[in-house]
Amino acid sequence: MKNIAVIGYGVIGKRVADAISKQDDMKLSGVCDIISDWRIQNAVRKEYDIYAATPEAADNMKAEGITVKGNMQLLIEKSDLVVDCTPKKIAEQNVIIYKTQNIKFILQGGEKHETTNHSFSAENNYQSALNLEATRVVSCNTTSILRTLTTLKKAGLLEYARGTLLRRATDPWESHLGGIMNTMVPEREIPSHQGPDAKSVDPDLDVITSAVKVPETLSHMHYWNVKLKKNTTKEEVLKAFKTSSRIKLIRYDQGLVSNNTIKEMFLDMGRPWGDMYEVALWEDMLKIVGDELFYAYVVDNQAIVIPETIDAIRALTGIETDALKSITKTNISLGIN
């Protein structure tokens, strides 16, 4: 049983904390943040131990009636590993603390690969993360790229891949702050950062991405054009995708015609926050033309990295050395079929 700390209790942090609490081989030692509003108050309601990142934050929390167990230093001392879910650039500063305190840590995909020198995707490189001091769980979009392309690569089908990403403008809860309306914003550089990021996990991938920010917040959508290594059938491609337990094949003709209808399905399934941990890939939209494969899927930007993070905890702490066993255990705990 390993004690795991969560630093940063935002969109990802709260989900990671809940996921840790569902495991039987790790324990949530506490959550740490600077906020004292409804977000951290929900952590109190869940009876999580609360730690303050700064003295000022501690004072604000206490003023709101929150029992503060201590500071970040104390939380680190009672933990075996830290999952840092803080906003960009804050994690980079925290890394200095983690290294000084000689504690293992996991960063999120917004940080640079060079910060940890290892980037993680459970179905791709679990073994190389065993007992490391640190890793970085790649971003939501990069996770989806690795899941789908890895299945095709393992099946001997992938020559190269070219993808276009329609990226949500911001997280749903803060769309009143930084969202965009009545416009689309293309990323200036091609490739966009997701393709090179995928290569930080698997350098052998020949993948180029382009991205456009669109005025919605529910998810990302990807369109992919893959050059196949050999002539194949739609059935063989679907068989390859089915080897991943974290790709969910959906059908357009079943009414799943948009990201909001897919979100509604997962809400009806009883998932917390309607979270979709899987890549939702349209099997009836998938087409093969000659040696080219075309497909599209939806990515839940708030949820897809949660199971990856749990697996990364097991790999770094060494409590499970077998990738499939960890993935299966995580899937069962989170209700992934």
Rank of each mutant, 00 (worst) to 15 (best):
D291Y: 01
D291N: 14
I306T: 15
T309C: 01
G290A: 04
A296V: 07
I310S: 08
N301G: 14
Y297A: 06
M285E: 11
V299Q: 11
P307W: 04
D291C: 00
E283P: 00
L293W: 10
V299Y: 14
I306G: 03
T309N: 02
L293N: 02
L293C: 05
L286N: 03
Y295N: 07
N301F: 10
G290Y: 04
A312R: 13
D291R: 14
T309M: 01
T309S: 01
G290I: 04
D300Y: 05
K287W: 03
I306F: 02
V289T: 11
F294M: 09
I288S: 02
D311K: 13
V298S: 13
Q302R: 02
F294Y: 15
I288G: 00
D291E: 12
E283Y: 03
D284E: 13
E308D: 15
Y295Q: 08
Y297N: 11
M285T: 08
F294Q: 08
A303E: 07
V298Y: 07
A303L: 09
T309H: 07
A303M: 07
P307E: 09
D300L: 02
K287S: 05
V299E: 14
A296Q: 12
N301D: 08
Y297T: 02
Y297D: 06
A296W: 00
Y297W: 15
M285S: 08
Y295H: 10
D311C: 15
I304P: 03
A303G: 06
V305W: 07
F294H: 15
V289N: 12
A303Q: 04
V305F: 06
D300M: 05
G290H: 12
V298E: 11
A312C: 04
A303D: 07
V299C: 11
P307M: 08
Q302L: 13
N301S: 14
I306W: 03
K287A: 09
K287D: 00
I288N: 04
L286F: 04
D311A: 13
V298F: 01
Y297V: 02
I310D: 11
A296I: 08
Q302K: 00
Y297M: 10
N301P: 11
K287R: 15
V289S: 12
I304N: 06
